[in-house]
Design a binder for these strands. Structure first.
Lengths: 165, 165
DNA sequence: TCCGATACCGTTATATCATTACATATCGAT
DNA sequence: ATCGATATGTAATGATATAACGGTATCGGA
């Protein structure tokens, strides 16, 4: 079995600057390749989304953007998020109305998420076989699948260990 | 393979009064068994949710409730919906901020939905094998699954036939 | 280099979705 | 009939997201 390109729950003491740096570098590269414009504003929003492995709310991002600078209005952040989602750099979590950075933007994939209800961190689940099966089941009904929303809430390994209750 | 108890996309000319009657009867029965109070108001909301196989928005339900009667405020409809969800009579679709009636409330199940982007109808997908697989994949990461949100957007068979584009 | 088209961004207003808090009414067991 | 628990009414507010419009930056072609 090959190493997954997708993100598991990150280790306790991982160097998060690496996560951010990698994500931003990948974003720059992808956008250059595709002729998409990763403007400073969009880059800044992406960086903020990557502040942690917790999903970021749009209005939190707004506040963070405004920090020190002049305040920004909702469309600013929603436009940036729309762009980033379009580019596959960010995923939206429908069950939380929140956004997370994508760790593998170069590998197009439907996002399947594990969401820890204790620590609120999010990981992407790499499960192409689930996709396949869902596709089959949908096809049996004559349904042409376009977009999947798969979000699994529960308790991550670290939280179970620290508080088995 | 046994007949699924869950709802496929309903046929063009199906007798929808049957759907509603069946759903309401099942609700009455379940609530009686469980000692839950299906008050007239809650029953009315359930009935409205079942007006069609399209997801119902909370504020639409509010308006419909108010029709002819005195206007109602948001908590009224949200409280009724909370009760109905608790009882498993209604599912919430996170990707649409909307609600659908559950066709098989006596069979506890995670809701997996097919949502047609053309006609906006919704069907439940019966795919215990998908559940199983997801559970396994999650378990591999030490993740204790609590709740699944699975919503598949696409085009239903009827819409594909009528407009293959 | 200039121009025009397109994409980006700022701003105001408003739409949409959902909850809090507290008062009143109803139900149902004793 | 009374009392506690549950359900409902009501007002206010919070949270999420989009519409509409105009100005500005950027880019490709003349």
């Amino acid at each position: 079995m090959s190493e997954s390109v997708l993100m598991a729950f990150p280790a306790e003491g991982h160097d998060h600057r690496d996560c951010v740096a990698t994500a931003l570098a990948a974003a720059e590269r992808l956008c250059r390749e595709q002729g998409a414009r990763l403007t400073p504003q969009r880059r800044r929003v992406l960086e903020l989304v990557w502040r942690g492995h917790r999903p970021a709310k749009a209005y939190e991002l707004m506040q963070a953007l405004a920090e020190g600078e002049r305040p920004v209005a909702p469309p600013t952040v929603y436009r940036a998020l729309d762009f980033l989602m379009e580019a596959g750099l960010v995923h939206r979590l429908a069950s939380l109305n929140a956004f997370v950075g994508c760790a593998a933007p170069e590998h197009p994939h439907a996002g399947h998420f594990l969401i820890c209800t204790r620590c609120e961190r999010v990981a992407e689940l790499d499960a192409p076989d689930v996709d396949e099966l869902l596709g089959e089941r949908a096809a049996e009904q004559g349904f042409a699948l376009e977009h999947e929303t798969i979000e699994l809430a529960g308790v991550c390994a670290a939280c179970r260990q620290s508080q088995p209750a």
